[in-house]
Computed example of a mutant assay.
Amino acid sequence: MKHALVFQSDFGLSDGAVSAMYGVALKVAPDLKIYDLTHDIPPYNVWEASYRLVQTLGYWPEGTVFVSVVDPGVGSSRRSVVVRTRTGHLVVTPDNGSLTHVHALYGIVAVRLLDETKNRLAGSELSYTFHGRDVYAYTGARLAAGDLDFDAVGEALPLESLVQLPMVPAQKDGDIVSGTIDALDVRFGSLWSNIPYKLFEDLHIPYGGRVEVSIRNDTREVYRNTMVYARSFAEVNVGEPLVYVNSLLHMAVAINQGSFSRAYNIGTGLSWKITIRRAPKIVYE
């Protein structure tokens, strides 16, 4: 049985790199179904690659093979791996941290070292800079086509040997929940935090209630304001900020029909911290 093959990279679509990966996969099995997750990961941004994988993987059928190529260490001693997730998906990728979020949210149950001397496109042995085509797309296609078993990829590796990017878990302290801004809803500029809804729920704030949001970059506060906790953007006026539950069931901040990230020049990563609490009552005398 053949499975879907899904590509992700930082290659963009302005040249032939992605097309070459398609070509290699279709040479392995002309009837493979190949899809794109995204090829617009910012160059070399392993954190973004890790997040976009976890944003998407769980919605694909069991058995789907993902090939994720954001590989600033290509040609170095960094390892290549294939992993099986608890959800039954396979991911082919460099071992550079791009599996961090998948491991944390879905769980990885088995890891195989991808032997690049055996699992590569014939005739590509002298190429050291395009493993996305020569190793990852080729191996991913063989896995998806059923021509290669997971256990035959290479030797088994311990889970704890996988490279993991540092993460700061969200937490609740009294009437405040806090976390980091992990990613942007790129096209619309919303801020996606790592604060799960279940943690926010403990604040017992109803829809339509007001919350206070503070955003800091390291030690500098760059934003503080009160806003509505809403089900959707339509529940606030155009141009008004809101807190909502995003598609990954984490807390997010947005401007209705505007870009929050551009409006306040806010980025992502561990240095960007966010806190949410019930808005304090204002007493007028």
Rank of each mutant, 00 (worst) to 15 (best):
M1Q: 13
A4P: 07
L5A: 06
L5V: 02
V6N: 04
Q8C: 11
L13T: 14
S14Y: 11
G16F: 08
A17W: 06
A20D: 08
Y22N: 13
K27P: 05
P30F: 02
D31C: 09
K33Q: 12
I34M: 06
I34G: 13
L37A: 12
I41M: 08
P42D: 09
N45L: 02
S50G: 10
Y51R: 04
L53R: 00
V54K: 01
Q55F: 00
L57G: 02
G58N: 12
P61I: 09
G63F: 11
V67P: 06
V67C: 06
P72I: 05
V74W: 01
S76Q: 12
S77W: 09
R78Q: 09
R79Y: 05
S80I: 02
V82N: 07
T85S: 14
R86M: 09
T87S: 15
H89W: 09
V91I: 14
T93L: 03
P94A: 04
D95I: 07
D95K: 05
N96A: 10
S98D: 15
T100F: 14
H101Q: 14
I108P: 06
A110I: 00
R112M: 08
R112S: 09
L113M: 04
L114G: 01
D115N: 08
T117F: 08
T117N: 08
K118Y: 01
K118S: 13
R120L: 03
A122N: 03
A122T: 01
A122G: 02
L126M: 11
T129L: 05
G132F: 02
Y136F: 15
Y138V: 02
L143S: 04
G146C: 09
F150P: 03
A152P: 05
A156L: 03
L159K: 06
E160V: 01
Q164L: 15
Q164V: 10
Q164K: 14
M167P: 07
M167Q: 15
V168Q: 12
V168A: 14
K172L: 11
D173Y: 07
G174P: 09
I176E: 11
A183T: 08
I195S: 01
P196R: 05
P196I: 02
K198M: 11
F200N: 05
E201N: 07
E201I: 00
D202Q: 12
D202C: 08
I205L: 13
R210K: 15
S214T: 15
R216W: 10
R216N: 11
R216A: 09
R220F: 09
Y223V: 06
T226R: 06
V228F: 13
S232K: 14
F233Y: 10
V238P: 04
G239Q: 10
E240S: 03
P241Y: 04
V245A: 10
L248H: 11
L248F: 12
L249S: 15
A254P: 03
Y264A: 00
Y264W: 07
Y264R: 04
G267P: 06
T268Q: 03
K273H: 11
K273A: 13
I274D: 08
T275I: 04
I276P: 00
R277H: 13
A279E: 06
P280E: 08
K281C: 08
